[in-house]
Simulated scan of single mutants.
Amino acid sequence: MLSKYDVVGLQEVDGGSFRSSRVNQVEYLAAKAGFPHHVQQLNRNLGRIAQHSNGLLSRLVPSQVEEHRLPGAMPGRGAIHARFGEGPDALHIFVAHLALSHRGRVRQLNYLSEIIQPLRHVVVMGDLNCTPDQLHAHERFSASLPLHPVKPLLSYPSWQPRHALDHILLSQSLEAAEVRVLDHLFSDHLPIAVDLPLPEACLAAIRSSV
């Protein structure tokens, strides 16, 4: 399934512990699906028991990758920021896993807003643990990244989806051709996919850095 996509964001993957039979799931999925580039962000390290991580798989060559530790009362939440290309038309992809608590999410969305605000072509994807309405209510984040697409996609729980907690959010410069939930029961959340034609200026910025 993953091999059909150019970029994949992962949450709650394990870095190689008892929880995953000592398999680094980011490395395993990258190898099995033929992704030449991958990033694992270890956010909650419980040693041999569990290594909770975010992951990014990509067929594109990232120009820069930054790992952000998101603020919160309990450590263990993070975001990967991958830049593809150089200059103002570079593509910026964030893979994030936000807190369960409202207060924690507000702090984390404030943090991400500061990073996103000056950027032009932005994709934020991940388990944001809140509904589209709750994202809209966060004025600072909505101002930094006007929410688009706004179509609610029910993804949780995977066996009987009733809540839209997982999102792919786009800056105004990007227009999704199609957004859909995939019917694959790999976890308690269903995956979400988007077909995203990129503006020519963005494509040129990516090509110039390869």
Rank of each mutant, 00 (worst) to 15 (best):
Q51Y: 03
I93G: 06
S17T: 07
R69F: 10
V106H: 01
V23C: 14
V61A: 15
I192G: 00
R22H: 05
H138I: 05
H68Q: 05
H184C: 10
H163Q: 11
V123E: 03
A193I: 00
A31E: 15
L198C: 09
L98I: 11
L145F: 14
S63R: 09
F141Y: 04
E27I: 08
P36F: 08
V179E: 03
G76M: 06
D89T: 08
A30I: 04
V181G: 05
F94S: 04
S3N: 02
S155V: 09
S171A: 03
H102R: 15
F18T: 13
D133V: 14
G87H: 06
G104H: 13
Q11Y: 04
L147E: 04
G126S: 01
A79P: 06
V26R: 01
H81F: 03
P36H: 05
S17C: 11
S63V: 04
Y156Q: 00
H37F: 15
P149C: 12
S20R: 13
G16S: 00
S21R: 15
R180C: 02
N43T: 08
F84L: 07
L182W: 01
L57M: 08
V123A: 00
R140L: 12
R103T: 14
G87W: 09
V122E: 08
L60P: 01
Q134I: 04
H163M: 13
P197T: 03
E86Y: 15
E66N: 13
R19L: 14
H97S: 09
D89H: 15
V179W: 00
L153T: 12
S173M: 02
R107A: 06
I93W: 11
N24V: 12
L10G: 03
P149H: 02
A82I: 12
R77D: 00
D195C: 06
F35H: 09
S171G: 10
S3H: 06
P191W: 10
H52K: 15
Y111W: 09
G55P: 11
A164Q: 03
L119Q: 08
P191V: 04
K4A: 11
H148W: 12
A99G: 07
